[in-house]
Nucleic acid binder design. Sequence first.
DNA 1: CCATGTTCTTGACGTCGTGTCAAATATTAT
DNA 2: ATAATATTTGACACGACGTCAAGAACATGG
Lengths: 203, 203
Amino acid sequence: MRPREFDHDALLRIAFDQVWRKGLRGALLSDIAREAGVQRGSLYNAFGSKEALFLAAYDRYAGDYLGAVEQALGGGTLRDSLTAFFDMTIRNFRSGTPPRGCPTTRGLMELDSSSSADAALHDQAREAFAALLTRIIALIEGAFARAASRGEFSSDAAAAAWQIVTVTRGLAVLERAFDDEAQLRKIAAHTIDLLLGKSDRAA
Amino acid sequence: MRPREFDHDALLRIAFDQVWRKGLRGALLSDIAREAGVQRGSLYNAFGSKEALFLAAYDRYAGDYLGAVEQALGGGTLRDSLTAFFDMTIRNFRSGTPPRGCPTTRGLMELDSSSSADAALHDQAREAFAALLTRIIALIEGAFARAASRGEFSSDAAAAAWQIVTVTRGLAVLERAFDDEAQLRKIAAHTIDLLLGKSDRAA
DNA sequence: CCATGTTCTTGACGTCGTGTCAAATATTAT
DNA sequence: ATAATATTTGACACGACGTCAAGAACATGG
């Protein structure tokens, strides 16, 4: 039983950072190995394949992101929660220089069954992306439901949650197209107004 | 002056079909060349690079898609126009077996500056994607403006147009995540309701 | 009708990243 | 100490991209 010579968790961070900045195609195993001070072969021994490594790295990120969503949705009025959620999400898209965009959205769009050697791993990756979205929807729906019980909201909480997550995915795409953060924030504010009504907006 | 031995337009169709089904990474120049009955070298002679070929193929598609948008938004009430627009868009995402998704959205998310050898071409591709979205927004905004002049709509036409395009991009992402066309249609209907009000819905 | 020049096509080559494997190495357990 | 087991290493084959010189096909001018 020879022990690993590299920090498993640090490697996942290095790998995800590369994927976030350069995409699945652009992230090179040779770069990751060099940055981590190991040989490529060790990565195959530890993870089995490039995709499996990236999947493990993504799971790590997904947990962090979900925690940030929970925190953003945590307190205050429904409008405050949604504003904080959009704010956090847009800040996440725009982090880094140049902005790295949304890893979940990019990962989803880069998926294609034909290019993946292992079909099971391909499905597992899609599950991981979908699972994060599903959990986010559940959290948002919960925020709407709580607000409804306080009399702050009276429409379909599930429909509202889907609407919001759809818009965040759209924002992730527009971010790549236009590189205009003010426009993203305008759209987010407009979405909130549509769902909650413009009338009860804070002064 | 030796003439080309292949049909330029047919080649673009073949290339775009490959990209649409397999993505930018998955689309192989060797497959395209074989399908078109030419050698890879001829493609480089005609287009200069893989990206330039795909860009030309995309421009062809963008024109077709924009025409379909114009037609969908053409007649009837604003609600009819928007319904037709979402319907056409979702049908486009779901065409093919398996569904091919949205090429514009996928193309945008696959863009990354570090992996492209030629920075000018990279920017040109982003411009092409952004230009299509901008034109679609203008068309939708026009539909809202016309409806406003008929008294069918009284809010901010530009904000409404951005909202709709953002949602369509979000739908393109959710399509990849969940493979659930009914859910996509629900979200689209909900978006229309939010913008136009649920009250004046057709019986 | 033939020669010339220009463009297109062909096939081979170098490069890069991936994935695999056998040999070497470093621990743990007996 | 020795055997057993897991990890690391470096070399290898493969596939796709991009380049290039040489050959092929056509238009033009004589």
